[in-house]
Design a protein around this nucleic acid. Sequence first.
DNA 1: AGATTCGTGCGAGTAAGTTGCATTTAAGTA
DNA 2: TACTTAAATGCAACTTACTCGCACGAATCT
Lengths: 123, 123
Amino acid sequence: MQIKNIIEEKNLKLTAARRELLEIFNFEQRPLCFEDIKDKINMDKATFYRNILMFEKESIVRGFESNDKKRYYEIQGSAHSHFICNLCNDIECLDEVRPKKLSGYTIVDTIYKGICKVCNKES
Amino acid sequence: MQIKNIIEEKNLKLTAARRELLEIFNFEQRPLCFEDIKDKINMDKATFYRNILMFEKESIVRGFESNDKKRYYEIQGSAHSHFICNLCNDIECLDEVRPKKLSGYTIVDTIYKGICKVCNKES
DNA sequence: AGATTCGTGCGAGTAAGTTGCATTTAAGTA
DNA sequence: TACTTAAATGCAACTTACTCGCACGAATCT
């Protein structure tokens, strides 16, 4: 879907900041934090966080905390889990063969933490 | 195992702060952040975080980030997962029937995020 | 008991994220 | 297209979880 449509569908103003933000998330297809974004476009952090808040409310992006005290955001698409390495802090996306179910609970994200392939080889 | 033994086994000095800290973690058997601790004992935050760092290095406790930008710590015991509610931020411990395995990776913690039983009922 | 090393508390510092406010901009209306 | 208005942006100040340097105090060794 086009960025323009995503924004207009939710009755949000189509601003340059929002278009650029969603273009990056759409292109990268992986969790990004503000630091990642500001290397790519010139945007005030207040603008970033306010728009992210709106995108989260509108279910356009979803965020989670990583090891490094930073929140990472990702555009909503096919459901998948994340693996966060405790050593290198790298975040990987994983497709779930058999998504976990828990009666009474709604699971929207699953995060595995541990040691990734690369770090396992190095130690 | 006795708190005293845990500490001496790792060749750490047995101080009042360390004993009290581990007593709380041992008694509560659930993830706690500094805020939770400081309500129970009088301890400087620097002392808390420095000891936690040491406990983590010695694999006595393990920590993870929650939704609320705070890090929660738990004494190491039987392996289990955690569920964090996106609405009320409550953290629950879950026993895994079939722990996830990923070839090449070492999984030490699994965190499910979503909406808990209580919040699901309320909405 | 005395010496030494390590832990503690205090205060200041760091960095991610938030908020208030003045200015700018998107989008509806004439 | 110009006008209006509601909302978005950028800046600076603030908040808060956490870290660091340093002087003092306490645990362990001999």
